[in-house]
Design a binder for these strands. Structure first.
Lengths: 214, 214, 214, 214
DNA sequence: CATGAATGAGCCTTCATTCAT
DNA sequence: AATGAATGAAGGCTCATTCAT
């Protein structure tokens, strides 16, 4: 007697296995240099099977990006729970981003590459929409936290919450992305690590936001 | 009487024309998706002629990157001349970067993509060396200006000049790079432009650096 | 019930078909002037398919050379069995070479061309090694047969077996190779065929080797 | 006042210089791997100038072949003068071929390659005709010398002069050509040089021809 | 005569995708 | 559902030859 249930489970499991394999290769090499043949081999399936689960190579790529996006969302949500004041939340969001970069560096390049090509993508695409939603979520929470911080007097009141949210969000992602590329230079010029720079960045940002009155 | 000089000019002019054509395509699409055939067609020459002026596609790519690098260096040098205090210089460097982005947005992605692949490049390559030199030049000037600012009391004294230079430099490039990718979102969420965000960023950074003591 | 065996056969058969097609073209034109496009067309498959069976054009070329090498080895082995005296064996090796040329003239040029470029080839290459082994095999058997002939008194004893083996082996391959190129001239000058010349060559060589003492 | 005579000389001299340059490259690399650009550079002239002296790359190739052909003809003519008996002349022709190979090894590959492609060449081509004529000349002289040798009793009389001429001529060219390709193997197997083998070949051939009666 | 920039057909190879089994 | 052989368009690059100067 054939058991049907495990089959069902295998279906979704296989999808994940394929993403796992793709991910690994995309990280090690990069999107362009990874071939469908390699992905199939790494996933332990036939090349044709790939197309039963994903409509194209790009689809596979998006799926990995989405996974990364979810990862960072989860990280932020989890970390933020331990915070109480507005400034704590804002700073924690920055720290989460940094943590994400440290923990899952592979997703970084992929997401960054993805973002830098977003302009050429079809905004109707569900995956593209999803990535916009995640960004929106982050931005929303960030501006709410700033307002909260102004109210609870942990953040200076002479700031524009909306603009600040945008700056912080943009600045942090940019910072994290750039820091990696400069690893060699940091070491060369003053024997400093990316981590030190990022910590200093967080500290500095905190100072900037802090309400120094009374 | 035949003039020989125009010949010479034409030679160099054609080189520039080819770079122009490549540039345009690299900006519109990207390096990988641009073909030599297209470049040739766009430059109005035969494919083989391309190889009379550039040894490979990569060589063409580097030439565009170098052009961008020179552009930003010139901009910084020019702008900095009008500044007198340390903080003015630091802020002006940020502004120059922003100005560069506004003036020559296309170079950005290319340089960024170039940087993100630097890890895989041969550090002996003259072009790679050149790009490192430009970075070093900027970083050097930045840290000197910070020290100058601390001395002339325009910059708060509780900062580490070296680390701060690294943060500012990383942060600004990251900021400028990211801001572009978020253009659509800014507009969507609060009808804001990248320019506004960048201006706000500069303003904020200035506040952070300022020496607020009497 | 599906038969699996034919599948297997087809796989190998297709390989052979491709070699057949390559062979034909390599013989008609030559390696350099034959294109992968032509080979594919002649084999009745797509160009890409070629690379499923052979890793490169060179690989295809080697495969044809190896086929020729095997053919001649087989021929020699088969013919030699019928011989008993040393001189018979030596002469038969020459005859086999001649027979090979008559039977498979196309392989000749290819092997010769291959040999004339051997100097530039990587001696580590399995195919190159293989060709050396075949040569060694022939040379070995030849010198053994000469020694045998001296012992059984069918070959004159005033010869140096090693040197003679080298001369015969070199001379015969050279003879056979050249004879083909002179076909037109033979006919023109004395209405003679390559075959007659080769027969005369064999006869003459036999006379040279024979032990004429009582 | 401009001197016209040197100009005229230069014309032919330049032709020779170009052949010199081609020759050098054809020998070092081979026909296929030599480019017109390299030839021009080596000859110290512009690429276009090449076509003022030679109609095509193939023409250049033929010119080198012809030069080689003339060289060997001269060598044979010169050497033969010192001979008096038939067998001496025959043996000397073989020796001359060997000498040619030793003296001008580069021409060898080229001529051989040329010959192996002769089948595909147009027999109307003047160069092709020329090469046939040279061969004819050699063959003619060879058969005449054999007849002479039979008459003066230096060559055994049980040979067919025509066939023998063809065999010797074919055999010697083949021998010389092959010997070079086997250089490595000779050394490997019995530490012998091509020269030793060729000498042994000449000696053996002499024995074969000699009239051993009375 | 001489030049050398320009040409463009053609080369080998790769790889995402399809489809008969 | 799974396979993997087959496809063929496309890619970067080369080079013998031409031709305007």
């Amino acid at each position: 007697m054939k058991e049907k249930i495990p089959e069902k489970i295998n279906k979704e499991e296989k999808r994940l296995m394929i993403i796992d394999a793709s991910e690994k290769l995309f990280f090690e090499k990069n999107y362009e240099d990874t071939t469908m043949t390699e992905i199939a081999k790494n996933a332990g399936i036939a090349k044709g099977t790939l197309y039963l689960y994903f409509s194209s190579k790009k689809d596979l790529y998006f799926s990995v990006v989405v996974r990364g996006l979810k990862l960072i969302e989860d990280l932020i949500r989890k970390n933020i729970k331990t915070c109480h004041t507005g400034i704590e939340k804002v700073v924690m969001m920055g720290k989460s981003y940094v943590e994400f970069y440290k923990e899952y560096p592979g997703y970084y390049n992929l997401i960054v590459n993805y973002e830098s090509q977003k302009a050429h993508l079809n905004p109707e695409d569900p995956l593209v929409r999803l990535s916009y939603e995640k960004s929106e979520m982050i931005f929303d929470y960030l501006s709410k936290s700033i307002i909260e911080g102004i109210k609870d007097k942990t953040i200076r009141k002479d700031v524009d919450p909306q603009k600040l949210a945008m700056v912080l969000w943009t600045q942090t992602t940019g910072m994290v992305q750039q820091v990696k590329l400069r690893e060699i230079l940091y070491k060369k010029w003053s024997n400093t690590t990316p981590e030190t720079i990022l910590d200093y960045y967080i500290e500095l940002t905190k100072k900037t936001l802090q309400n120094n009155e009374s």
